[in-house]
Amino acid sequence: MTGDRLLPAGAREVFLPFEGGTVRLLTGGAGPGTPVVLLHGGGSDNAAISWYPVLAELARDRPVLALDLPGFGYTTGIEPAGPPGTTADLAVRIAAAAGHPRAVWGGVSMGGDIALRVALRRPGAVAGLLLVAPGGLTGLAGGSRTRHAAAWLGTRIPEPVMRPLARLAGLGARATARAVVHDPDTMPAPVVDEFVRESRRPGAGIGFYRYNRATVGPGGMRDDLSEQVRAISAPALFVHGLQDRWVSPGDSRRAAAAMPDAELVEVGRCGHWAQLERAGAFLESAARLLTRVDDAERKPPAGDDHHA
């Protein structure tokens, strides 16, 4: 912990001056492996919450960078953009400014949507993808027209009205945090406490509100990448809890089947946050992907001649 802020084991907190504001980064590791850049989810999430039990192990043999996106956590002075493509471009610039112009990009939920867009918009920046229940892969919010209509109506609430409503929603944050997983007893107490703090932060919820406003259309999702992901050639891993009530495991199945080099790991007795609820299964799968990426990144480009 730093003051009353959560820090994953082994993480260093860095505040990076960036484009007129300050980005909070959690960094760890310094080994020879391919760097990893991690993006958190939406709602009352931030880098420490999403990656609390796994950052240290991921950083065991490589640099790891987890960032608070604008509108979340302890990043300040940068307006949250809303559209995930715009946020993806911003995240690439942040990673480059922090010394990682090429990396494995990891993301959970909303962060997975953004990571997929990084791969589509800036393929040279992406050595691989590590995705946990990623968003951006469905035509309807919640998987049904009824739920989608309700989500659409929520995005029509004017932002000045949404701000006090978000503060009221924060009163139920502890219950919400436990509802994201299949077994609430697996949620580390420090993560739940940080989730509550995040929900009560000034401006909490506006980053996710703008994301939803940009992605939820009146008759369907504007950010559905189901067809576009076929163009992603980077090796990818999808990890999805079978009891996920927030993002359908079917979204990851279809995307993994469509992509040329993707593996899907479905985790039983697990909800939306597999990297928290089943950290061991997540890390085992991630280690396989990272080994593959490291081997590929060490190979010289095709056509290079290293003979004297």
Rank of each mutant, 00 (worst) to 15 (best):
M1Y: 10
T2H: 14
R5E: 13
R5L: 13
L6A: 05
V14T: 14
L25E: 02
L25Y: 05
L26C: 07
G28C: 04
G31N: 09
T34P: 08
P35F: 08
V37P: 04
L39D: 09
G43V: 06
D45R: 06
A47K: 01
A48D: 01
S50E: 03
Y52D: 12
A56S: 14
A56R: 14
E57N: 03
E57G: 01
R60G: 08
L65H: 02
A66L: 10
L67K: 06
T75E: 07
I78Y: 08
P83F: 07
T87Y: 03
A88G: 03
D89T: 14
D89H: 14
A91I: 06
R93I: 06
A97S: 15
G99L: 11
R102N: 10
R102K: 15
I114S: 03
A115R: 10
L116T: 06
R117E: 09
L120W: 01
R122T: 10
A125F: 09
V126N: 04
G135D: 09
T138M: 13
G143Y: 06
T146H: 11
H148I: 05
A151L: 03
L153I: 07
L153G: 03
R156I: 01
P160N: 09
A166S: 15
L168Y: 06
A169F: 13
R174P: 00
R174C: 00
A175M: 08
T176Q: 15
A179I: 00
P184W: 06
V196E: 13
R197I: 00
E198Y: 03
E198P: 03
Y209L: 11
R210N: 08
G220C: 09
M221G: 05
D223E: 09
E227N: 04
Q228C: 01
V229L: 08
F238T: 01
H240V: 06
G241C: 10
D244A: 05
D251E: 13
S252I: 01
S252Y: 05
R253M: 08
A256P: 13
M259I: 02
P260M: 10
P260L: 11
P260R: 11
E263V: 14
E263T: 15
L264S: 05
V265Q: 06
C270Q: 09
C270S: 11
G271I: 02
L276I: 14
R278L: 00
R278Y: 02
S285A: 15
S285G: 11
A286C: 07
T291R: 15
V293H: 07
K299V: 12
A302M: 11
G303D: 10
H307E: 14
